[in-house]
Amino acid sequence: MVGCRAKSRRDCGYLAVVDTGASKCPWAKIEAQPYFLYNPKTEECCDWKDATNCVDLQADVMFVIDVSGSIDSQEFKQLISFVKSIVSALPIGLQETRVGAISFTSTAKLEFSMDKYATEADILAAMDTIVNKAGGTATFAALNLLKSEAYLPSNGNRADVQDLVFVLTDGKSSNKQATLDAVKNIENEGYTIFSVGIGNNLDLDELNAISSDPDSTFTLRADFDSLNTILNTLIDSACRVLAPVRTPGNGLDSAEKIADVLAVSVKTCELDW
Rank of each mutant, 00 (worst) to 15 (best):
M1A: 14
G3H: 07
G3T: 12
C4K: 06
A6F: 00
R9W: 11
R10H: 11
D11Y: 14
V18F: 03
A22V: 15
K24I: 02
C25V: 11
I30L: 11
I30V: 12
A32E: 13
P34F: 03
P34T: 05
Y35I: 11
Y38V: 09
P40T: 08
T42Q: 13
C45G: 01
C46W: 00
K49Q: 03
T52K: 08
T52Y: 02
L57G: 12
V61T: 13
V67C: 13
I71V: 14
K77V: 14
V83L: 05
V87F: 04
V87R: 01
L90R: 02
P91L: 08
L94F: 15
Q95I: 09
E96A: 15
R98W: 01
A101C: 14
T107W: 01
K109S: 14
E111R: 02
F112N: 06
D115I: 11
A118K: 10
I123Y: 03
A125F: 06
I130Q: 01
K133L: 12
T139Y: 05
A141F: 07
L145Q: 07
S148E: 12
S148K: 11
Y151I: 06
Q162C: 06
L164H: 07
T169C: 08
D170P: 08
S174Q: 13
N175E: 04
A178N: 12
D181P: 04
V183Q: 05
K184H: 10
K184A: 15
E189V: 02
G190L: 02
T192G: 01
I193A: 07
V196P: 04
G197F: 05
I198C: 10
L202R: 06
D213G: 06
S216Q: 14
S216F: 07
T219E: 04
F224H: 03
L227C: 10
N228D: 15
I230Q: 07
T233K: 15
I235T: 09
S237I: 02
S237H: 14
C239K: 05
V241I: 11
V241F: 00
P244Q: 07
I258R: 04
I258M: 13
D260S: 14
L262R: 09
V266I: 11
K267C: 12
T268W: 01
W273H: 13
W273Y: 14
